[in-house]
């Protein structure tokens, strides 16, 4: 076991996979000479050279498309978006190329590519730079979408993503890059599509992922002092979605709150709610509640930003609301 930061776990996974497979390369803005806009790829240019760590101009649609084409004919690209916000410029390549190649070609071609980068809110970077893009992408059959919360999962899942024969979108978080965690030595790729119960409890299940897992754990700790026992399910993978683990937990606690960044309309929370009400209807003692961004673009002002984001206070109040329902 070693303690690694989130960004170091990512880097190790990429380095190990690049060492074992020459087809794997890293491409994106400032990934090489600048050592990564958020220092995720620090040292990788020196290690692998310009053939395999490739700085691009600002041309997301161009280099996402280059990744897809290279993947079709046998390479295994890792395409970094400086942030997922900028993937909007490349949305067509992800939606219409990466996700469709296999179906359009009747299964003749696959697209083994990883798109990765930091996602969702940073701090006061305004409406164009604060998007939680996973909701858009999880909607698309043909794509896999991962959003781990802890360094060990980051490493195991990144290795799995690189070896996967499908397009895998890897959602990181600027605010998590420095988070530390234990990572086993010689970690093998993890199975994609498995949620993890990161805290056991009996009164209410919080289903969450990425940064909000950490916030949810804080809330669970606080509520424990008030005698409320919260179970926290860290999804890790949004598509495929591990409904088995979620349902097992809800059948135990009878209550479910889904917590994520991004807007409520049609998001991952809506998907989880649908599955829970369908598969555990008879077990529910309260409506499934969601804690998400408020349904407006992200404002710059610090207080309003906190107000719009799914903050600790709101998660706490929502769990209490779920738990108090049906109890006298």
């Amino acid at each position: 076991m070693r303690t690694l930061r989130y960004r170091e776990a990512l880097r190790e996974a990429m380095i190990e996979e690049m060492e074992r497979d020459d087809r794997v390369f890293l491409m994106g803005e400032e990934v090489g000479h600048y050592q990564g806009a958020y220092k995720v790829s620090e040292g990788m240019l020196e290690k692998f050279g310009e053939r395999r760590v490739i700085d691009t101009p600002i041309a997301e649609s161009g280099f996402a498309g280059i990744g897809v084409g290279a993947a079709m004919v046998g390479l295994r690209p890792i395409i970094e978006f400086m942030t997922w916000n900028f993937s909007a410029v490349a949305f067509d390549q992800i939606l219409n190329s990466a996700a469709k190649i296999r179906q359009m070609s009747g299964g003749q071609f696959s697209c083994p590519i990883v798109f990765r980068g930091p996602n969702a809110s940073a701090k006061q970077v305004g409406s164009q730079h604060s998007h939680a893009m996973e909701h858009f992408y999880a909607h698309v059959p043909g794509l896999k979408v991962l959003a781990p919360s802890f360094p060990a999962d980051v490493k195991g899942l990144m290795k799995a993503a690189i070896r996967d024969d499908n397009p895998v979108l890897f959602m990181e978080s600027e605010t998590l890059y420095s988070v530390k965690g234990e990572v086993p030595d010689n970690l093998e790729p993890m199975e994609i599509g498995k949620a993890n119960v990161v805290r056991e409890g009996t009164d209410c299940t919080i289903v969450t992922y990425s940064r909000m897992t950490h916030v949810s754990l804080e809330v669970a700790e606080e509520l424990a002092k008030e005698g409320i026992s919260v179970e926290v399910v860290d999804l890790r993978s949004l598509r495929p979605l591990d409904e088995e683990t979620v349902i097992r937990s809800v059948k135990k606690t009878h209550r479910c709150v889904v917590v994520h960044e991004g807007w409520p309309y049609g998001g991952v929370g809506a998907e989880v709610s649908d599955r829970v009400q369908r598969l555990a209807f008879d077990y529910l003692d309260a409506p499934i509640l969601r804690v998400t961004n408020l349904d407006v673009p992200m404002p710059y002002n610090a207080k309003l930003e906190q107000h719009v984001m799914p903050n600790k206070e709101r998660v706490l109040a929502t769990v209490k609301r779920a738990v108090s329902r049906g109890r006298s």
């Binding site: 916000n85 900028f86 909007a88 410029v89 006061q124 970077v125 305004g126 409406s127 164009q128 730079h129 404002p299 710059y300 002002n301 610090a302 309003l304």
Partner: peptide
């Protein structure tokens, strides 16, 4: 980030808009 800012504190550094002077804005993408 103040209410008296050109974009009411909602835009911040990257998004200076001012209809009165035909400043159609600063853009982040």
């Amino acid at each position: 980030g103040k209410k008296t800012g050109c974009s009411k504190g909602l835009g911040g550094s990257m998004h200076m808009f001012d209809a009165a002077t035909n400043m159609l804005g600063g853009y982040g993408i």
